[in-house]
Design a protein around this nucleic acid. Sequence first.
DNA 1: TTTATTAAGTGTATGTTTGACACTTGTTGT
DNA 2: ACAACAAGTGTCAAACATACACTTAATAAA
Lengths: 256, 256
Amino acid sequence: MAFTPSLNPHVSTDCVIFGFSQETLRLLLIRRNIPNRLTDVNDIHYALPGDLVKDDENLNNAANRVLAELTGLKGIYLTQFQTFGDPLRIAKAKDRAWLESVRQDPDARVITVAYMALIDSQKVVLQPGSFSQEAVWIPIHEVPELAFDHNEIYEQALAALKERIQLQPIGFELLPEKFTMGELQSLYETILERDLDKRNFRRKMLNSGIISPLAEKQIGVSNKPARFYIFNRDFAQNNPSAIYNLRMDGSFTLFN
Amino acid sequence: MAFTPSLNPHVSTDCVIFGFSQETLRLLLIRRNIPNRLTDVNDIHYALPGDLVKDDENLNNAANRVLAELTGLKGIYLTQFQTFGDPLRIAKAKDRAWLESVRQDPDARVITVAYMALIDSQKVVLQPGSFSQEAVWIPIHEVPELAFDHNEIYEQALAALKERIQLQPIGFELLPEKFTMGELQSLYETILERDLDKRNFRRKMLNSGIISPLAEKQIGVSNKPARFYIFNRDFAQNNPSAIYNLRMDGSFTLFN
DNA sequence: TTTATTAAGTGTATGTTTGACACTTGTTGT
DNA sequence: ACAACAAGTGTCAAACATACACTTAATAAA
């Protein structure tokens, strides 16, 4: 029986992984050193971490596998946000030489399911990369030109993050267990790209019940030590919109 | 050169198409009459409309094509909301007999990019179906058991609709050009599954600037005729959160 | 022609939340 | 001691949310 080769596309996942440190939102990227045949100088290629989805693997598992291989972490906040499938999204790639060196068919169509991950970057010990790969944290305002359509994917992820943080208490995923009010506010200000009033922010957060103060305070800082707080994960799950001042009838308000 | 058959999955789009008529939110489904080999009685199978993505087609185009073939409509509100890719989502299908009758490899993996469409159901003249297919509007509370994992997809779509209508002025996509305040409120009440106060609803909608009153009123109704309003599409695009009482600093409130 | 029925349309008073704003506190470093 | 630094705190006015009931305009029925 004649077998007609399948024209089915490949399916991959790409992970847009956000971290937050030193008052800066950062992106975890893969860096490759690739010899450029023309210039004989090593080009540096950055890309979102990702991989083909395996035959027996569902999409979430594929994304979790990519994340775990890279960071060694499991149980991270990871959510699908959009699927990209332009027929030419791979063929249009600028680093075509590299593509040809890596794949049998550089023109093959690849549809990618993009995920957004939020991690406490302090937890991450970047894993030694397979191949000549290396993972690096890049501040979001310094993201270079990426492979394929990864710049677009990243931009969509950032937009999705900005939107979702206004609806769900996901900011805490980017902070350590114990955090100060200042860190929390700085995180929100960074993502939302605007200043928030310290007293109003504090009032809303505390009134919401979504965080609890600890007795513990900072030590060794050369100013008044800040109190630590923890995120009430259970409370948040039972009161999905708590931080947004949920009213009795379901409406709510966002932060000022 | 030996050719290894590709194990790549198929990729399809499925469309969850919502309409609103007679105070009821409805779903546009495909109905097939399939002879059941065992019972020799025709089974009725319902499914979400969908199709494989063609080689040269991007995902949005594929979804738009499915929608246009079914309804004859273009330029409809259509948005990707989630991708489903469990390896067994097709193989687990209950109507396996049908699957075997239709496809070479009933076990082949299919990853589907699900879209949500909102249409003014008055505009739709359902197209004569190809094959023994027929499109039908089913009230959302009467949705039967669907093919594959389509019940799950539909439920996710409904949840996404409920969430998005609280953030974006998309409800108008389900209404005719000219609508009454009562129709609009009824639509919101249906989707949000709760009653809204007539006076407060009216005040918020009008203050928002997102709709404008027309001189025209209902005729032939056996009660005080309602005024018609139109959706200010341009205004809404320039003021994305207008209906939610956007404050000067970006925060907003939802309907009460 | 009167009366009933139906849904549209309208205003106000009270409580809550927001938004704007500046000084004091507690720690380390000099 | 004191300088530097970020943490932490309270109030008032304006805007908004919530709750609530009667009048109006059309047709249908008597």
